[in-house]
Design a protein around this nucleic acid. Structure first.
Lengths: 241, 241
DNA sequence: GGCCCTGAAATTGATATATATCAATCAGCC
DNA sequence: GGCTGATTGATATATATCAATTTCAGGGCC
């Protein structure tokens, strides 16, 4: 019966689903769970599909579940008290969303919105807590995972507050190429507004800054395709602010 | 012999030192350790005094130790590739510095500098890791502790990037009054340069912004004494950016 | 299939504003 | 009494804002 519901919810991964959902680096988190423990977690999971633009989790709601992104791409957005948003990071498939309140104050501190069609699992956070309290290896791995995300956030904070626009645009472009798409001319499924929100500026400013880079022969772009022609110089611009 | 060295290093707390060093909310982290485990941690600790202005830990060095602040006040500073700094937070006594690389990539991602005379313990991070891997309650508590710090960082990020100067100055003042000094006219042992670095602006801009608030009758300040006269309005300014 | 229409997104331009920078003056203190 | 930090002022610069224009994909229609 348990197996049946699993089959129904999640066709591609009957056994040890969540382990297999993740590539090596992140799977280690789930690998620290015993088969029993993993089943305990999976038992209550809800497999849900979101269409582009749909809100997966919403800032300020309570963290009844944590989310595993299996397929697709989403953006993590902090909404400020005034209307403006900041895109904190892009979540590719195989992302685990446990930071920002899930293991702390039970309130979500950011919104996650689907960029492409997203396939994900919602898993009861109560069960996560129970396992964390019991399984030290699991807690330890999650601690490492969250801490490394914080370091990235710290770096964003410094970049966004200390760099001028060209530096911030460079950071965004390098991040997309190296961390997200991992090919060089990359077909970017973010619009200019979103790229601007990643860079902490208005879309007009982003466009102008990008054009500067284009005139210097450092990047090239056509609609949503972006190519980095001179990465060395771009890194230089990122460094020098 | 072990006891002797402890006595020598840390006069005020022979037994269960680290538990007693922390107030309730944070002690829970160490309380999850057994007496044996705690002794294992303490055995190798180095009790060190820093004078104002001295660097306690330095960005980009490796995280051989984690630090417990027992007494005094320090600032956590992110140094950007260009000269400018950002003060991420003020560390009052009873702070635990395990974030930012200690349980992740073994590199420090910020500098900590003493503001007043600081009394602290340096503890071998190897031992921390060993205990984290073994004691799930401990790992769980540290996870919660670190996650709540990240939430604060996320909020700083949003505030610093989305708010205008008056809002950022308001945030800094409210933070100091409510989180750090916890009295109303408070004697602030940070200079204007440092207050500006907390608010993500130059000292001149900070001074001008503070003066605006003073002219509106919202705050009052004289040298290093600062008083918030109308907190409600100040909160409003913080909210509206 | 080719064509025009339409609307959203992208881009450009002109201007306003927030903030930094630089230089000068001021205040308090060892 | 000179030195450091605080403050003020004049100016430059980065960035946002607002408005106008362009581009282009999609959809209906012949």
């Amino acid at each position: 019966m348990f197996d049946d519901s699993l089959k129904k919810d999640c066709v591609s991964c009957q056994k040890n689903c969540c382990v297999k959902c993740f590539p090596e680096s992140e799977a280690v988190i789930f690998q620290s769970l015993s088969t029993d423990e993993l089943e305990y977690l999976m038992q209550c999971k809800q497999h849900i599909i979101f269409n582009p633009g749909e809100t997966i989790i919403k800032q300020k709601t309570s963290t009844t579940h944590f989310v595993c992104l299996k397929q697709g791409m989403a953006k993590m957005v902090a909404e400020s008290s005034r209307g403006k948003n900041i895109i904190l990071k892009i979540l590719p498939g195989h992302s685990l969303i446990t930071a920002g309140g899930v293991v702390s104050d039970d309130i979500r501190h950011f919104t996650v919105t689907a960029i492409t069609r997203v396939e994900c699992c919602f898993i009861d956070s109560e069960r996560l807590h129970k396992l964390l309290e019991r399984n030290s290896k699991f807690a330890y791995e999650l601690l490492k995972y969250n801490n490394s995300q914080n370091i990235q956030m710290l770096e964003s904070l410094v970049g966004l507050t200390q760099k001028y626009m060209p530096g911030r645009v460079a950071d965004t472009l390098l991040y997309l190429k190296n961390k997200i798409y991992q090919t060089n001319p990359f077909e970017c499924n973010l619009n200019k507004q979103e790229l601007a929100e990643m860079s902490g500026m208005t879309k007009e400013s982003f466009i102008r800054s990008l054009k500067e880079l284009e005139l210097s022969g450092i990047v090239r772009h056509n609609r949503r395709e972006i190519e980095i022609l001179n990465e060395e110089d771009l890194v230089m611009i990122s460094k020098n602010g």
